[in-house]
């Protein structure tokens, strides 16, 4: 009921947000357009990451691999292999999906800290590949000079690339939103809540975990594609575990339990990064602090703030439900 009544303000909000984002380059100095492009790319990565993390409840510390693979596909496709735009994007998507499937299969039945360590190891293995194959990837130096000539832009410069990124990100966000509402998307959430219940209902839990990783890997790779073209540069840093940790923090700070929370986290953290970097070199320290403060005071992330207020307000018309009664036979039930 509340969901139905709450729908049309959401629609208005989304339309207003999209309108504002589209008009942004006309409203702010061009420097902020570059900053916003970065925010949108990271927001898209965070939303993709959250399919595994928030929806699936699987703690991955290896998502930089998808992002970086997308990034390197652009870097190498443009500078080395002369691929067309279409080929670059398709290869990036395929790599993201394929490595996602590999993650899913290799982490079957692992959870919690074991899953975290296993995805970390997988991610670092792929980072090592880029780092060591100096012949192809130029190792630590990274690949520079990744021009945007191939990108089908209207016009030139940061402004037109901003609109390209916005378009791709909005289309991806819409797709992920539909996906999250679909039976498969809901089943992924179900396996987060109780794998044993889902299995007893007839869902093949492992399949849904794999699908989560594939979808997440696919869109993470696409975000990586946007990222490299944004910076016109890609280095092993895009694959490094620190990138995985960063996106994890972005999702948690924003609010991993909601669909758009991670995108909000990206906006807040990238803005903060920009502002803090003006004053000090200690961005990583500040980021760590933000993370700790979030964990301590906002367990549901920044969106939790709004949610908490709304729930306090709503609790007025929730009917009173009787307390659970004690066991008749006097046995303790956990």
């Amino acid at each position: 009921m509340a969901a139905l009544r709450g729908r049309w303000p959401t629609v208005v909000g989304v339309l207003a947000g999209v309108g504002l984002l589209t008009a942004l380059p006309a409203l702010v100095p061009s420097f902020y357009v570059t900053l916003s492009t970065r925010i949108i790319v990271i927001a898209m990565f965070a939303l993709a990451f959250n399919v595994v993390f928030g929806m699936g409840g699987m703690h991955s510390l290896g998502h930089a691999a998808f992002f970086g693979l997308g990034g390197y596909t652009v870097g190498l496709g443009v500078t080395r292999w002369d691929w067309s735009f279409t080929v670059i994007v398709l290869v990036a998507l395929a790599l993201g999906a394929f490595v996602g499937l590999a993650y899913g299969i290799l982490t079957q039945r692992t959870n919690g800290i074991y899953l975290l360590l296993l995805t970390l190891a997988l991610g670092q293995a792929i980072w090592g590949l880029a780092f060591q194959q100096v012949e192809i990837t130029r190792g630590d130096n990274g690949i520079s000079g990744v021009t945007r000539e191939l990108v089908p832009l209207v016009g030139t410069g940061a402004l037109s690339y901003y609109h390209f990124v916005l378009l791709v990100a909005l289309a991806s966000t819409g797709s992920l939103w539909w996906f999250s509402l679909s039976p498969v998307g809901r089943a992924i959430v179900g396996t987060r809540e109780s794998p044993t219940r889902m299995a007893a209902l007839g869902f093949r839990v492992g399949l849904y975990r794999n699908i989560a990783f594939v979808v997440s890997g696919l869109f993470s790779a696409l975000a990586g594609v946007l990222y490299t073209w944004h910076h016109r540069f890609v280095s092993p840093d895009a694959l490094l575990w620190e990138m995985s940790a960063f996106i994890l923090i972005v999702a948690i700070v924003g609010g991993a339990n909601t669909f758009l929370g991670p995108a909000l986290g990206a906006a807040v953290i990238i803005s903060l990064e920009f502002w803090v970097s003006l004053h000090t070199q200690r961005w990583m320290t500040v980021l760590g602090l933000v993370y700790v403060l979030t964990i301590l005071f906002l367990p549901e992330g920044i969106v939790g703030l709004g949610g908490r207020l709304r729930r306090r307000h709503a609790s007025v018309d929730v009917p009173v439900i009787p307390e659970p009664t004690a066991s008749r036979s006097g046995r303790s039930h956990e």
């Binding site: 039976p183 179900g190 809540e193 219940r197 889902m198 699908i211 339990n257």
Partner: peptide, 27 residues
Amino acid sequence: NLLTELSVWDNVLLAVAARHAPVRRLF
């Protein structure tokens, strides 16, 4: 053993969806 943080409605929808193979695979 329920899908605790989901709504009652979502719990039952998933349980019903479980018996339709084509629905289970719809994304």
